[in-house]
């Protein structure tokens, strides 16, 4: 089969991936909901905690699926690049594992403070949780740098564009909100609120940029 032929967007592989994603996402969402109900966290949560947990679950699930799929070259090839019928090569597998670790660790790091804060832990355990988060952050940074080094120029350009858009839009929004807050016209935001907004905006911009470059 020639890869020069135009392929329909909704191929069988894409539909299977979509169905699997729906099932995995649904199960993950149900699990988090059950967990929240079980330990009675939901009543005390702010909007940023609830949104943060959704983002955390999304990141962790994506990362975990990517890591598991990376052990099957055909599966990860179809997942990363449905347009290429060949199994993924070693560089693609390495890139997928790095990206999988970055996403999974990002999800775990996002969820940990929300859960730890809600459990009412004593000072010592909270300090230990923060030390653990710092260690995870360092590990994730190493994976992020490795991903950057393995990525080709198109991927790096996309990362740069996403960063640029996020910086300009969010610094503007932060300035306007801070001005409104200073004038007593807008409610105060916590740094966790700001982080949650930043993560959601970052993920949305990443998806749009990826789609525009033909990566989605």
């Amino acid at each position: 089969m020639s890869t020069l032929e135009k392929r329909p967007y909704f191929t069988r592989t894409r539909l299977i991936q979509f169905a699997v994603g729906m099932v995995v996402g649904g199960l993950a969402g149900y699990g988090v909901g059950q967990l929240a109900a079980e330990i009675r966290l939901a009543d005390d949560w702010r909007w940023s905690d609830a949104l943060g947990m959704i983002v955390a679950c999304l990141l962790f699930t994506l990362g975990a699926v990517m890591l598991v799929a990376s052990f099957n070259r055909r599966a990860i090839g179809a997942m990363l690049d449905p347009g290429d019928p060949r199994p993924a090569g070693p560089p693609q597998v390495r890139l997928a594992r790095q990206q999988g670790w970055v996403l999974a660790l990002g999800g775990a790091m996002m969820a940990a403070p929300i859960l730890a804060a809600s459990l009412g832990l004593p000072y010592g355990l909270r300090a230990a949780a923060l030390a653990g988060l710092i260690a995870l952050f360092i590990v994730q940074t190493v994976f992020n740098l490795a991903f950057w080094q393995s990525a080709d120029e198109v991927m790096r350009r996309m990362v740069g564009e996403v960063s640029l858009i996020c910086f300009w839009v969010l610094q503007g929004a932060l300035f306007l909100w801070a001005a409104g807050e200073k004038l007593g016209l807008a409610p105060a935001l916590s740094t966790w609120d700001c982080l949650t907004v930043l993560m959601i905006f970052y993920l949305a911009v990443s998806a749009v940029i990826g789609f525009r470059r033909g990566f989605a």
Partner: peptide, 12 residues
């Protein structure tokens, strides 16, 4: 030494 998606992005 680039990804297939990158070639597709350049071609299109």
């Amino acid at each position: 030494g680039v990804s297939r998606q990158s070639i597709n992005a350049i071609e299109t």
